[in-house]
């Protein structure tokens, strides 16, 4: 018999509303708005209340997919990341870093978006980075 409320931040937009994800024996049973939080003050929008909807969704990808001979197949993270690194290095070598662009997401945390910006500028060497929240 295990009951947990895990403190977390909504991943749907940049407001940063705070919430608890409630689990009973490891299964998600609900969301509680965090009443002690200064930003959201115990209030959430409809997306916040339903933020856990995708966790157990059958459409959710559990492993990376790689297109092999025209078909998407499940691969390990190691294989997927090696493939991405190899391709990006190749493109940079042949056509320059500015032939690469990055789209990041409002569904990531602030910190993840910061890392993406570092990856673009410090690792790849391009300023071509944008974000879906601009749409």
């Amino acid at each position: 018999m295990e009951y947990q409320n895990t403190l977390t931040t909504c991943i749907y937009c940049g407001c940063g509303c705070s919430m608890y994800v409630e689990t009973i024996d490891g299964r998600i049973t609900g969301v509680w708005p965090d009443k002690t939080n200064q930003i959201s003050g115990g209030r959430l929008c409809i997306k916040g209340w339903n933020v856990t909807g995708f966790v157990g969704h059958p459409d959710r990808l559990k492993n990376p997919l790689l297109r092999k001979e025209g078909k998407l197949v499940e691969v390990t993270w190691d294989e997927a990341l090696s493939q991405v690194a190899e391709k990006l290095s190749g493109i940079k070598r042949e056509s320059g870093a500015d032939s690469i662009g990055l789209m990041t997401s409002a569904k990531c945390t602030n910190e993840e978006n910061y890392l993406m910006n570092k990856f673009a500028r410090a690792v790849l060497g391009t300023n071509n980075i944008d974000h879906c929240a601009r749409l």
Binding site: M1, N5, L7, W32, D34
Partner: peptide, 12 residues
């Protein structure tokens, strides 16, 4: 109270 917030808990 944990991690700076307060939430329901099952004390055992």
């Amino acid at each position: 109270r944990r991690n700076g917030g307060v939430a329901p808990h099952l004390f055992q």
